[in-house]
Design a protein around this nucleic acid. Structure first.
Lengths: 227, 227
DNA sequence: TCCATTATGTAATCATCGATTACATTTGGG
DNA sequence: CCCAAATGTAATCGATGATTACATAATGGA
């Protein structure tokens, strides 16, 4: 596969037909596919709508060029979503690696916090991943699989918690769906502008996210023996 | 205000210039604004994207006509959202009117169930209301006010529950945000295709919604004395 | 080494969409 | 009755997704 840092100028005949252009980029881009994905993610992060043409513009390429790499706009969005999902998942896995394996509810908490933290800091990317409005639902097998694995992870954590007698209810399915809904909902509330900007304080929303997750865990956890 | 069932043909001179067209609609529509809003909601409900032109087409009117009633597409979407929000709110208020005033947690449950029931049955309309992606965020004062009132309603219910000593925690803010996040998240999960179609059974998702809400209430409620 | 095949980019073009402008028709009040 | 305001039409513009024909570069086998 072509790398990003490859030599930008193959030493073939330069053919400087126009001498005033500062960057006579070679006819071939090098890794246009990657550049388009990056441009798409960047556009989304800037709050602009992602158009194929604008991505092409950012890659300094003609409007038709992207269609050599993606059959249509949705395919570009799907590729961008896959990249975003990789980053999302990586951050969650780092958080889980740092949490002790023996404490399921602590892992559950770490998972939720990492999830929300990423979603708060990358709202546009989170939306591309989650909404399925930017490209057909099951069009990306990688995205589907990745997501299913994350869900399975939470199921495993909850099953461990149940096995250790840490949960008040045996209805794991409801707990799982409720937890997903709450975290997903909090992320989307932030995204959709339903979280008032409590004070200008940075990190205030992070704090609220923490409070909400802890409330949920307190709600499902079996009360401590002495309480 | 003009009604939908108004006489479609004012008895002015018919001017049948072309005799083969089945419906020589009069030059003036009657209530184009309302027809455009209906068309927009209908298009959304059908899963199609809402375009001004298609709404105009459905109203059998020229592509420029809608702009006599809405300055731009967003304004049309905002008007459609206001209409959807009215229906949404009406259904919730009916549900609350049927719930006993003295049982705050029962009212909380009724609220959540009505909310989810409507969101499940009108996913596209729910999205128009909630997403703020179809028109500028605070562009509709009515929508903002309506939504704020619904939120205030849940706050009141929770405050009542706290006053009656029904809650385990005194952190009403976290409870409120967590509850909103969970219900909102469940609705959006359905919308975004994150709820697997558990069996073809109709009403299965309704059941899941109920389970999730009950789990949440059980989590925040002070345990019964004898338990 | 040559060159032919394939990969990749360009130019031109099309249909659709949101939006604006100039013009036409209808309606309703003075 | 008539004119002004409201409302609809026609024509047009710029942006976009997408397709097609063509141009250029990269690659590998003879």
């Amino acid at each position: 596969m072509l790398e990003r840092g490859m030599p930008a100028r193959p030493p073939s005949k330069p053919r400087a037909r126009r001498t005033n252009l500062p960057e006579p980029r070679p006819y071939h881009h090098g890794d246009l596919r990657r550049a388009l994905i990056d441009a798409a993610l960047q556009l989304a992060a800037e709050g602009a709508e992602v158009s194929v043409r604008e991505a092409a513009r950012r890659a300094a390429v003609s409007p038709g060029a992207p269609f050599r790499h993606f059959p249509n706009r949705d395919a570009l969005m799907a590729a961008a979503a896959e990249e975003a999902q990789r980053r999302f998942r990586a951050e969650i896995e780092v958080a889980l690696d740092q949490a002790p394996t023996a404490a399921p509810l602590g892992r559950f908490r770490a998972f939720g916090l990492a999830y929300l933290r990423w979603a708060m800091r990358n709202p546009a990317h989170f939306e591309i991943i989650s909404t399925g409005r930017y490209f057909a639902h099951g069009s990306s097998a990688e995205l589907t699989r990745d997501n299913a694995e994350l869900i399975a992870l939470t199921e495993q954590i909850l099953a461990d918690a149940a096995k250790q007698g840490l949960l008040r209810s045996a209805d794991l399915k409801s707990i799982q769906v409720a937890g997903r809904a709450m975290v997903y909902g909090f992320a989307r509330m932030n995204l959709d502008g339903h979280l008032p900007r409590w004070g200008v304080e940075e990190g205030e929303i992070d704090q609220m996210a923490e409070g909400v997750i802890d409330l949920f865990i307190a709600g499902i956890a079996r009360p401590a023996h002495g309480a």
